[in-house]
Design a protein around this nucleic acid. Structure first.
Lengths: 132, 132
DNA sequence: AGTCAAAGGTATCCAATGGATACTGATAGC
DNA sequence: GCTATCAGTATCCATTGGATACCTTTGACT
């Protein structure tokens, strides 16, 4: 793993690592993975915990994660049906990098909200100035 | 400690940390930040390095990052114009968490591609079986 | 003088994605 | 029968993303 000649490069649009990187960055996928970090969860529970996601989009997300081997889908032959989603070993290996990002996000909330307010105020002033 | 009462919680749709988390997960934003990790870059260079992004979308991405205080935009009074984008201190603090994700993505490329092939093959067989 | 090129974007239009809402199918319990 | 539960589909519409063309300023070239 020499950093000199990385075999995979996210900046190359033809490199599969980029596709994978963007799957992680998917709006719902990363939340689902973090929820599954505590163990298997069924579909309806996921919907409640990863609020507010519509069933169609949650299904799409879960199928994509399953396809990439990050989660498994287990159907229990019951009525009403019970379907459990669970992290694979690969999926679990994502928990740590994701939790670092999460910690970053949670700890920088105040700073970023301040920056937004300042930026928006500046925009407002610019607009007012131009109309005078 | 129940996870229900975290001060900032990504799973809460009303918590700003979620919005921020999703900005990081934006398709282009995280790539831009990683490119800017080596120092300021001008617009046209960014377009080349973060290929392939259209100017409209790159502008949207940069404006959003600027609004959140992760990058600065500096216009040099020249002709032709020169505009440099540069990470702020907050933006730089994102580099480490992002590089962990990037390393994860790059190192898991083979595993995930295999999983995809296996999944797609299984889907194909299921389709063939149902049509017989 | 006229024309071209460079840089950093906008403007416009169309395709893809995301989301709201309603519905399905099997069965157990009332 | 009627209803409830669960895990989704089906359908439709709004938002976003992307391709392409265009704009502006000024220096260099012809």
């Amino acid at each position: 793993m020499e950093p000199k000649d990385l075999p995979a490069n996210i900046l190359d649009p033809n490199c599969p690592s980029r596709v994978i990187f963007q799957r992680i960055g998917d709006k719902w996928a990363s939340l689902v993975i973090q929820v599954l970090g505590d163990g298997p969860v069924r579909f309806s529970e996921l919907r409640k915990m990863v609020s507010v996601v519509t069933p169609k989009v949650l299904t799409q997300t879960l199928r994509a994660l399953e396809r990439d081997g990050l989660i498994t889908r287990t159907v229990h032959a019951q009525v009403p049906p019970r379907v459990d989603y669970e992290l694979t070993a690969v999926g679990e290996s994502l928990l740590q990098p994701l939790s670092m990002l999460r910690e970053w996000a949670e700890s920088h909330v105040p700073t970023i909200l301040e920056a937004r307010d300042a930026y928006d105020d500046a925009q407002d002033e610019a607009l007012l100035g131009s109309s005078n």
